[in-house]
């Protein structure tokens, strides 16, 4: 596997999706970086965990974490950064293979691919949710600390 090439291609792909979704121009670079992060985590996960579902979960988690941090930095909504990064993780080829097998009347094989595609999309969703919950807890803790510092107490 050619790491620099894949990094470059995933960066380019995510930035292109940024153009299609019309993200603000000064965030295009960050969108590409988020996409690259997600894809590289996914590829590493496939090599070390040997399971596309877990690897996709890790990739989506990484994308959502990066998107949350960038959203704080740019003071912009989080979806601007996460949308383009999620696209490379969508199980397009599994869904395609499932359909191709249905068309060719190989229903048993189609079920294998379809359930894999379903599991992977579930992993994308779970990755997004876990990162969101984690960031909420972290941000709440940070806000509490700031409040204590300036002498405000909650309620």
């Amino acid at each position: 596997m050619n790491w620099p090439l894949e990094a470059f291609l995933s960066f380019l792909a995510a930035a292109s999706f940024g153009v299609i979704f019309n993200t603000p121009r000064r965030t295009l670079l960050s969108c590409g970086l988020v996409g690259m992060t997600g894809w590289l985590i996914y590829r590493t996960g496939v090599i070390f965990l040997d399971d596309p579902v877990q690897a996709t979960f890790a990739g989506a988690f990484g994308v959502a974490l990066a998107a949350h941090l960038l959203a704080k930095k740019f003071k912009m909504p989080m979806i601007i950064f996460s949308v383009a990064g999620i696209i490379p993780l969508v199980p397009g080829s599994k869904a395609y293979n499932a359909m191709r097998n249905i068309v060719e009347n190989n229903y048993l094989e189609a079920i294998t691919f379809a359930s894999e595609a379903l599991m992977i999309s579930g992993a994308v969703a779970m990755g997004l949710v876990f990162a969101e919950v984690l960031m909420q807890i972290v941000f709440k803790q940070m806000a509490k600390r700031v409040q204590k510092k300036i002498g405000m107490t909650q309620n």
């Binding site: 792909a13 999706f17 299609i20 979704f21 979806i79 996460s82 949308v83 383009a84 999620i86 696209i87 969508v90 397009g92 080829s93 395609y96 293979n97 191709r100 999309s121 994308v124 969703a125 997004l128 949710v129 969101e132």
Partner: peptide
Amino acid sequence: LDTIIIGSIMPLVPGLLITNAVRDLM
């Protein structure tokens, strides 16, 4: 044939809808 088709349909994938649907449900 397979990789050409998969690559070409990628721009049509509803990425924003999937992300938003999950976030709204949660």
